[in-house]
Amino acid sequence: MAFVRFRVGFWAVCFILALSKIAAADNLSPELGVLLEEGLRSKGPVKVEQFLQLDPIQKFCSDSGVNIHSEEAGALMSEALEQIQYPDDDDYVGDWREGERIAQSGKGLRFNDSDDTINGGNCYACHQIRKEELAYGTLGPSLYQYGKLRGYSMQVLRYTWAKIFNPQAFLICSNMPRYGHKGILTMGQMRDIMGLLLDPKSPVNE
């Protein structure tokens, strides 16, 4: 009898565990959630539990038939815009030399990185920026002469900051990471990248 009770208890615990596992991935289709939960392993700075919590934008953009002109898209974009944090004292433009280093570095937040790796921006993976750097990707538009072409007005500064902070605020399901919103870069690092793009003395604007 005691054994039977143990068995029942055992299965009840299994059942509750199974439920909670699925609940952990409740943003995904349950089958896909289970597949990811079982097939992935936390390593370095990448944690499975955190990974499985899709936020509303990730959920929306993971649909293969996504309609980026829908009402929902509009709502997600305005929410993203409202959440953008701007630097104090309108201090937007940091050190372009440091910005160049950040734009070059693809380090951070991969499972082979460590928790204390300093994250890079990896902007060159997708953008042309300085003329001298020929190993640039083409997923995004060229940012060469970014400031020279657009000017250095407060409007340009605010837009560019916001775009780097959360590109989804301007184009839903953009392929560009949300550097500020997701905490990939610090405010200070973002300021330095702004310097690379928007300091008139930066070689980008020669």
């Binding site: 289709s29 896909l32 990974f51 934008i57 990730q58 993971s62 293969s64 399901c173």
Partner: peptide, 29 residues
């Protein structure tokens, strides 16, 4: 399931297979 995975955008960078493998003549670096 594989198709859902291909389109899944998740993680710190919102990347999915689709980010890097859905356009013609694209490069990373």
């Amino acid at each position: 399931l594989g198709k859902q995975l291909f389109y899944l955008r998740a993680g710190s960078h919102d990347f999915g297979c689709i980010t890097c493998h859905s356009g013609d003549n694209k490069r990373i670096r």
